[in-house]
Amino acid sequence: MDYGSPLLTRLVRGLTRLPGIGERSAQRIALHLLHAPVEESRELGRLLGELREKVGFCPRCGFYTEGGLCAICADARRNDALLCVVEQPVEVLSLERSGAYRGRYHVLGGVISPLDGVHPEDLNVDTLLRRLDEEPVAELILALSAGVEGETTALYLAERLAGRALRLTRLARGLPVGGSLEYSDEATLQRAFEGRVELK
């Protein structure tokens, strides 16, 4: 597609490389920037330029930070006794949005998957063990995905943590909130049964 300007064409093409953006959306974004007040695209350009320079990963937990400890690690009101292990930083965002958790996090950086060339030493396991030595953690919560790799990684961590005075838990599996039994698949129902809880 020729937009009458090589620059515009290149911008549209560049935008289509972004996740979830097709040619139509890319065109809308590019034309919007062209017609909106110039400050809007200047500000966006400045942010994009600084993004990779300033944003890095927290040396303690692996979440996003602009240098030094991330906001969560630096927050003194957080519960030090709870540590939640997630695969990627994006999962911290999901859990934070839920507001259900006020402990601290540890980003593993993935799950064990030899098919993808990911082995235990490629994950942030050693830093996790060091944290458990140094921090007053009473409960380690594994919030890994429910697939074969997530479960295997959980098993691996459980083995590495054997012998520690630590409560090891993982997130419950089962019915979605507001979900009806009728529309749940068999595996989910089975898990929901296995994970049933006492009504107090």
Binding site: I112, S113, P114, L115, G117, H119, P120, V148, E149, T152, L155, Y156, E159
Partner: peptide, 18 residues
């Protein structure tokens, strides 16, 4: 996964888990 691990390393410490 287990075969991939055997292919890549012929085994190794975390073969036991698989």
């Amino acid at each position: 996964q287990r075969n991939a691990l055997l292919q890549a390393r012929g085994g190794g410490p975390h073969l036991e888990i698989w």
